[in-house]
Nucleic acid binder design. Sequence first.
DNA 1: TTGTAGGCGTTATCAA
DNA 2: TTGATAACGCCTACAA
Lengths: 354, 354
Amino acid sequence: MNEHADGGRPNRSAKPADEGFQGRRTTTLSDVARLAGVSIATASKALNGRAQVRAETRAKVMAAAEQLSFSPNGLARSLLTGRSGTVGLVTHDLEGRFSIPTLMGAEDAFGSGKVSVLLCDARGDAIREQHHIQALLGRRVDGLIIVGARPDPRPSLGNLPVPVVYAYAPSENPQDCSLVSDNVGGGRLAVEHLVACGRSRIAIISGDSSYGAANDRVAGALDALDEAGLLLVGGQALFGAWTEEWGRGATRGLLAKHPDIDAILCGSDQIARGCLDALREAGRDVPGDVAVMGHDNWEILASNARPPLTSIDMNLEELGRRAAARLFEAIEGHPAHGVETIPCRLALRSSTAS
Amino acid sequence: MNEHADGGRPNRSAKPADEGFQGRRTTTLSDVARLAGVSIATASKALNGRAQVRAETRAKVMAAAEQLSFSPNGLARSLLTGRSGTVGLVTHDLEGRFSIPTLMGAEDAFGSGKVSVLLCDARGDAIREQHHIQALLGRRVDGLIIVGARPDPRPSLGNLPVPVVYAYAPSENPQDCSLVSDNVGGGRLAVEHLVACGRSRIAIISGDSSYGAANDRVAGALDALDEAGLLLVGGQALFGAWTEEWGRGATRGLLAKHPDIDAILCGSDQIARGCLDALREAGRDVPGDVAVMGHDNWEILASNARPPLTSIDMNLEELGRRAAARLFEAIEGHPAHGVETIPCRLALRSSTAS
DNA sequence: TTGTAGGCGTTATCAA
DNA sequence: TTGATAACGCCTACAA
């Protein structure tokens, strides 16, 4: 046992000076035990609230721990328990706006408790993803959440030594546990709202048709139109890009062909912003003449629009929270399978006031 | 030594069945050693490329490791080395857009190597921050990066057992290591660009004056105006809010009082969007009659503006990367002190074409 | 009520 | 070239 004369000073008798950060050696349980004049085992019991410790002794130990600002080494503890209290979160779209709320929800669900999140950005690259996953497994994460960049199915990671939950982009393997936004329901919700606002000549300006989400939203909208006994103006949804530019152009085209239109459902808030601009420039009043809706409820775009934009919110934070919850359950031995769908909600603003 | 009859089957002789995730016990170095028919020590050396191992033996061990898909337990390793290979990243603005690029840069700088990032969102709450920091220290992170929500100085965390770097929002203590965006330089850069475009009747619509950033940007702009021998139109910068609405209103006011204005420097891209709208509606051509600049280079706003918006980019990813680098150096024993300033760069688009 | 001892999975030292 | 063995910091039987 080292016999270093203590006293709170930086002490580097044993180790060489290439140690890096020159803080004092972090205090360990045996430091506490020594200061309290008890054995390590007793100190451990005292600090962990075990019953077989005299109150007086416990107090002594707690005081010593306090004095040394002792913080138990989680790594050592993990080694014992086999649980690191850590989950890996691999995102593919850290710069994008969809993964962030999901991440927040997950962070939220875990953060309160005793789980920490190890974040990695794989940037849509399968190689990088694999690399990160290996690193995370090496750190003995208790589970993984994989957040996709876009809501289309992605390859499964297969059998890993820890549970995996896919968020936003589902796994192709239905045995895996995935959580996604209910795009069909979102489209339906939008049309139902427009109908409830008394609109009946509705057109749809969607986004990039290569996105499953674009098609799903349209499908839901068509369902709802059908149920309301309405026909889509123009006969079919317009597909283009997720840009304001496309929104403007498509809107101008619509107005030219169908001047009697009274509502436009857009595939995203960006498209809707373009749509609003084009309408204003064509002298149409929103929502007086034409109601407009977006999708995503991207606050910065929706609230600053003129008029503020009614939109469909995907509840991504809730999605993240649920993903965290599912992962937690799986870690506890109760894995879920299949795709779970998170319902959208209406974010009501002035562009559709009825 | 345990004498359990092995065979790759889930083996839970010792531990009860409340274990949670029902994967097979993760394979350990001793499994590899046994399969390869060598001692644990030899297996370790073989896998870590130590020299004192016969090639044939090494191959045998590697094969065994491969077959068992062995992945060394990083926790055990950390316990030995005293380094967790982990840093904590505490952000205060996970939903906001400023912390994300910083986070990305840090993730980027670390992610390539062998450091992983533990992410926490403290949401501007000092209590929550303290809580997260304690948790991170318990996990024995090798260092901390604290990312602020807004660029004003924040209280120092004081003396922690690991190095700390403050990003975006500097610490109040000049002894700490902080990295911030050069807002003064950004303001200067903007005016220099406008002047280079031949503008001389320049006005400034800034944001919330309670933000140091707002004032710094204006200060830099005024410096540059002065050096160019120009006077600010209106005599002083206009402060308001970071919104499109404020941008529109302020622009209308400017046009009324100073119809001969030929450039407007905005404190943010949102303000600039409002400014552009107001100009268009007033029949002013951009950049023909009036040049407009924003700040932040928020892609989604700047590129979709009409015309696309020239803006000042804060290089936040670079800021994050640098923060990671500084932290790394500090961990290696070479801490930096004081506030390091990251220069802005010009993001040239059509709203100022000269 | 307290202390001793064993072990979690690795790595490093030193002896064989 | 290989293999015991002692750490790393902690927890938990079990013994005192």
